[in-house]
Each structure stands twice: as C-alpha cells, then as structure tokens.
Design a protein around this nucleic acid. Structure first.
Lengths: 264, 264
DNA sequence: CTTGAGAATATGTATATACATTTTTCGACA
DNA sequence: TGTCGAAAAATGTATATACATATTCTCAAG
C-alpha cells in the first residue's frame, strides 16, 4: 500500500470475493484470476463507480488487494488499455479513459449466409463482366499501384427470388491475376475472393442515396425509395485487391453494429 | 524443435533478423520483442503466406526461432487470438483462423467535433422537449425495465449555419434522473450524457430512408433526397440509458469504418 | 527565484519456472 | 480385437524476479 488515491476506492466493498491464489474460488465464477479481476474493474468503470479521469489503484496495491502477483494485474491492465477503458502513464499511474469516439464493431457478413439466415432462398445473377485498363475513377483507389488491368463485374443478389442487393465490383488483376480466368456466373466474386485472399485491410463508407433509374429497374423500387450504399475497399499485403459497392433498398435493409466492451 | 508442421514454414526466411534477448536490435525497428514477433506473424497471415487453416509453429519452437522465452511468444499468441487471427487448441496447436465476417470498427464521433473538423462553425438548436410516461414504442427498448418516465428531446445540429443533422432522443429517467433538471438548450444531450455516463454498451442500426415532409423542412432537402438514419441504443450497468435517432442528409454525410487488423 | 541534477516511483518488458488442463496417442489387459 | 486407462504433448495460467524507462518530485546551487 504505497500512499495515494489507491485503496480507498477499492475498499468500499471491503472484501469483494477475493480469490485466493491457490484454494478453490470462494464466490461464484470458476473463471481464471485475471478474468475475474478484469471483470471486476470493467464493472467499476462501466457502472460509473469509477468515472472518466478517476485514478486506479497502483498495480502493487491491486495485486495485494486481490491477493495475486503483479504480473497478473499487469496482464489485466494491458487488456484494459487495449480495450480503451484506461490510460496509463509511467510514474503517475492508471486512469479511467475519457470516452472519445463511440466505437462499435460493424460486422459485414457473407450475403448468402445473411439471406439464408432469414429463411429465404438465396440466388445470384451476374449481370456483366468486362476487363479493362484501370482509368480515371479507379486510379484513386489503386493509388500508387502501377495502373494495370481491372475486372469489372456487376451482379444481383436475390432473396426469395426477389432482388436483394446490387453489387458493383472491381478486382485488381495485378494483385489477383487468377480472377481473369473466372466468369463469376456460378459464384459471386465475394465468396470467391474471400476463400482465396485470406485476410485483408478494408475501408468502408456507408451512404444513403436516392435510387436512380437503373436501381429502380434492377431492385424493383419505386421512384422515391432511398438506397443504402456500402462501399468497401480492400487491400492485401501486396496491394489493392478489390472495391465493391453494394446497393441495398434502404427500407428493406439495415446495418447493425454492436459496441464491444473490450473484454469480449 | 519437437517434430511436426512447425519449423519448415518459419525457416523459409532462414534468419529473419531475429532480435537477441539482450543486445541491440540488428535490423530496423526499435520495437519491443513481442511487438516485432506479433508484426512478423501478422504479416505472414495477412499476406497470405500462411493461409486460413495453416498450422503455426508451436510456442516452444517459435520461442527458439526468435530467441525469446515461451512467455513472450505466449503473449503474442494471446493477442493474435484476441484479434481473431488465429485459433488455438490444446494438444493440437495453433491455426490461422478462417475469416468469418468482415468486421470493421465504426467510430461515432461527437457531432460538434466532427463539424469543427470540417472547418465549419458548429451550432445546436433545441426544437422540443417533453417529459412523458414510457409508452408503446419506447417499451421495446426499455425492455423489462419497469416503465417509468422518459425525456423526449428533438434538436437540430448545424454546420456553418446550415442544418447538418436531426436528433431525436429519448432519455430514460429511471437510469439518469439528473436529466430531468436540464433544459438542453445550451448543451446537446449527447455531450451532456457522455460526460455523465462514462461508458456504455451500445447497439447501432444504420438505415436509408426517403426524406419525409418534416425532414424536407428541417434539413432543407429536396423531395427526392435520401436520409441516412443512425439509431443508437445505449445501456449502462444499471439499465437502458438513452436512444437516439440521428437523421443525416444522405448525400452530404458518409459513415466510414476501418477494418482493424488486431495489432492496432 | 530559477534551474538542473538526481532520487523516487510507477509502469513496461522479459525471463525462468511451475503446475493445471485438455486432448490425443498408445499400449496393456481382457 | 476392442476398450480402458495412463502417458505424452500442447496450450493456459500464475508466480517471483529482474531490470529498463519515463516522469515527477526534491533539494541544493547559482
């Protein structure tokens, strides 16, 4: 127990089910030590008992309080930092972080799975495919990559026989030369790519636009309908891979995002 | 070196700048050991050198390869798991994970900051405020919470004197009783809440809708314009806190989300 | 009253060690 | 030949220890 802000705040629950290093756990939860401690501290922060800016007890004190070694506490603190719940400064200590931006995890699933999970029959229909030299608009995405050929594909995803989403895709043939030999009639570019290009960096832009003529026709919309447009650009270790724009009928489709409270 | 799949895959760069435990680093990067190792393995996975399903070398072998202790490698592996890049099974080993859903991090900033970062003057105007008993529509959100009073506020956020976004907010007075004494004329509910309620769980829904009459008027839209609607529901340790719907002119506003490759 | 050297302190990183846990493998015994 | 149980192998967790590093605090010299 060094001296400052620390222990007072911990001790207002005098002995909150502290697990012993060796024995069986006293209260509920058969979790590991660091999980229990993590949950306990997260709870203090999320519940507001420790508001933003509040100083946390020092590692040594927490270790003493929970009856564990400093390394265990250190592991917990590391995870709290990674989750953005606290900030730490040498010599000063650790503090509950000011919530900056609300950050949420946006999951973008495979369309086929998404449709099937609604108990609808999934279908895909390729509308067009062309190979061309990268030009104008494409170059902004390809950036510095030496402008080679790209594959442009448009297709329609169907749910229960009805149009679900319009896909306009560009594949960089410099990075994914194998795509040149695929006709994308039987398989949509999305699943094909994701089985080939294992992991990526991506950027998303989500926008609402009024439906234009082509979208009225393809998505069977009325003139006033709005569309949700999700643009995704994807990179790879070796350069730009693909760019898609997915156009959904706005009132039929919703993107959901869940906030992740760090200790997921 | 135990025996299986391990080392072959590591050794194709026979001696990739292995940092010694003590000496100065040989190649670039003054990072810490586990960061260097993390980056190295992430690179192998992201670049596709180790495709999904590929077995990673065992901890002991990695430790030997990089010339560090197993604990250090273990820390790295923990972070790779947390980032969703690998999966681990006892006795079997560690494997590159199959990419499931494309998951991206969606950051929702304070509107004031967002506007000011565009070099526009920020303004806020409260349109209405009323206190009422929770009813019908609200209850779905409040769920099991015993239906008490809620505060309903609508306001308009302005950028450079022009309408930027329409906010419709409900605050649960059971969870945030202090809100009853605020008029929300000088301060918008968002910043007021976030300074009070330190951290939350939240759920977002993003949707495109055609602008209706009221939105035409308030947001100065033309009849055909589309709107981007972001609904956010927020909880706290002690229950539902608030629900907002932000309506943006769809063609003026874009939500961006960046994929986070774990080792951020 | 300012400045600067150095002590004090809390975090940051890494190691060696130990034992628990889970799952596969393999061999003894019926 | 089948099956049950023990050994083996890999990860999972926790500890004690050590030293590095950043930052504040103190105190004395100018």
């Amino acid at each position: 127990m060094t001296r400052r802000h620390a222990s007072i705040d911990v001790d207002d629950h005098p002995d909150r089910g502290i697990p012993r290093a060796t024995g069986k756990t006293t209260i509920a939860s058969d979790q590991t030590l660091h999980r229990r401690i993590l949950a306990d501290i997260e709870d203090k922060i999320v519940s507001g008992a420790w508001p933003p800016g509040h100083p946390l007890p020092f590692e040594v004190d927490l270790a003493a309080h929970y009856g564990v070694s400093r390394m265990t506490v250190n592991k917990v603190m590391g995870q709290l930092v990674q989750g953005g719940l606290i900030e730490r400064r040498k010599r000063l200590g650790s503090f509950v972080a000011q919530p900056k931006a609300q950050s949420a995890v946006l999951e973008i699933h495979d369309i086929g799975d998404e449709v099937r999970s609604l108990n609808l029959e999934y279908g895909y229909e390729r509308l067009s495919l062309s190979r061309r030299r990268a030009s104008g608009d494409d170059l902004a995405w390809l950036a510095d990559a030496s402008a080679g050929d790209v594959l442009a594909i448009t297709g329609l995803h169907l749910a229960g026989g009805k149009p679900f989403c319009l896909e306009e895709r560009l594949i960089n043939l410099e990075t994914v030369p194998q795509a040149a030999d695929v006709d994308f009639i039987a398989i949509a570019p999305g699943p094909w790519l994701s089985s080939l290009i294992p992991w990526t960096t991506a950027q998303h832009r989500i926008q609402a636009v009024p439906a234009d003529r082509r979208e009225h026709r393809l998505l069977e919309l009325t003139p006033k309908d709005a569309c949700l447009v999700i643009e995704r650009r994807t990179w790879n270790g070796s350069g730009p891979v693909t760019r898609v724009t997915m156009t959904y009928p706005g009132n039929r489709h919703v993107v959901t995002a869940d906030f992740r409270p760090s200790g997921s």
